[in-house]
């Protein structure tokens, strides 16, 4: 694992208005995530873990503080630049996979590359490599409805990987899977972190899933409670 932090949050605060009330899901949070680390975030509902994940993924903007990822303060980026940054630096894995049903596994994985200037051949090579990494090269022409939940999540992981981003964020990636499929997905995430150097931030409610990570952080009311290194 490389010791220089990929993610550096400094006094990160997020608030928004809900009716007449101001809600602060995240308050003056400081956090460093080294490159290649697999970090799990746990906490009760409303603790701010998904808000933190969304900020790190660049789909939400902090109200205060700095959020430096791979040397760049993304809180300063415009919307357009943030989209481009996301395409190159982050792969997002959703709990419910969110694959487009009318597209095959191959076409779903290809989606992030459609806006790049890769040639057709380069795109094909990248998509096939990503599907091979998740063990689904023989299912590439299947539509999502022809795949099991675990396989759908693997396609979603391949989609997150295909642009080769240094950072993967996962919002309860095993929340909708049975025990075996969940174990298989967690093993895949571990491999991506350990063998391919991907930095992974995963939100989970499941202590078993959190055990797959290198480190576990607990959040409550928008603040970090404790940090716990987990055995390899």
């Amino acid at each position: 694992m490389n010791a220089s932090p990929l993610i550096h949050c400094h006094h990160l605060t997020k608030h928004y208005r809900k009716g007449k009330q101001q809600v602060t899901p995240l308050q003056a949070l400081d956090l460093k995530v080294p490159r290649g680390e697999f970090l799990a975030l746990m906490g009760p509902s409303g603790s701010g873990k998904t808000t933190l994940l969304n900020l790190i993924a660049g789909i939400d903007s902090p109200s205060e503080g700095e959020l430096i990822i791979d040397g760049q303060d993304i809180s300063q980026l415009s919307r357009g630049k943030l989209s481009r940054w996301r395409a190159q630096h982050v792969g997002y894995i959703f709990q419910l996979y969110h694959l487009i049903p009318v597209l095959s596994a191959y076409e779903n994985v290809e989606l992030p590359l459609l806006l790049d200037s890769f040639s057709g051949r380069e795109r094909r090579e990248r998509v096939e490599l990503a599907l091979r990494l998740v063990g689904l090269e023989d299912r590439m022409h299947h539509k999502p409805k022809e795949l099991s939940g675990g396989q759908e999540q693997r396609v979603a992981i391949a989609r997150a990987l295909v642009a080769d981003p240094p950072l993967l964020v996962a919002d309860e990636p095993t929340g909708d899977l049975d025990r075996d499929a969940a174990a298989s997905v967690l093993q895949l995430l571990q491999e991506l972190s350990r063998e391919h150097g991907k930095t992974i931030v995963m939100v989970t409610h499941d202590p078993k899933a959190a055990e797959a990570a290198d480190r576990l952080l607990h959040l409550e009311k928008g603040k970090l409670l404790e940090s716990e290194a987990l055995p390899a």
Binding site: I59, S83, R84, H98, I100, P112, L115, A163
Partner: peptide, 16 residues
Amino acid sequence: VKENAVLRTLGYPAPA
């Protein structure tokens, strides 16, 4: 709505 948000998350800019 959700699917467009997923595309935005994947890095699709608003004009796309």
